[in-house]
Amino acid sequence: MSASFNFPSIYNFPPFFTRQPNNQVLNSQLANWSNLIINYCEFHRIWVINNAGNIKSSSGSFDDELFHNHKINRKLNNEMFVEIFNYMLQNNLIEIFNNDILNNFNIANTNMNVNKSKNSSKVNYIVYWKKPEEWAQLILDWVEKNGKSNSILTLYELTQNLSIKKEPFYGLHPFILLKSLKILSSDNRAKLMKDDNGQVVGVKIV
């Protein structure tokens, strides 16, 4: 784990960890939580979070500091997790991770350890600290800037290649990548290359 995240002051406010009965108050509480989660995930480049608040990421495993403030000894309970994730789902800030979509990918090259457990009680969420449209735009910009348009790129090249290490979408989760590419293809800016099994292996961006 690299530099530590600067938590906002509300993180140290004990009632922040308790579900507030008043709806208006609850909404602002949830808004603050989703802001905190997005910021935290962006800082640590976290793509996936599960419904119990566990985080696995490329940069190693995290302790539970986001949802458990050790300093004031407060921890989110399950009820609050449900509230927060429902709120974020409604606001399109997260999306339920769906294995079926990933099956279409060739993920042989990715070193991400996505939790594939069949346990239905565990739901993984993809965190959109940038919207898929924004990711798509970033990729498009990069392709145009580097003269890669009209050439076929593998998914690995787009996310894992050392040459793009400084780009924001380095290490982009395949789920988000596919989403973004689908957006591009629906705008006729990209053409998805599929292998014999129908899995996407490459893309040609025009």
């Binding site: 906002p8 509300i10 406010f13 004990p14 009632p15 960890f17 308790t18 507030q20 009965p21 008043n22 208006q24 108050v25 602002s28 509480q29 808004a31 603050n32 802001n35 905190l36 000894n73 407060r74």
Partner: peptide, 22 residues
């Protein structure tokens, strides 16, 4: 606003609504 813990409920003045997240 409340803070429920195992040792009881603590009451705080509502400062969520005016809180600016930064």
């Amino acid at each position: 606003i409340i803070d429920k813990t195992i040792s009881g409920v603590v009451y705080y003045l509502n400062e969520f609504n005016n809180y600016e997240y930064n």
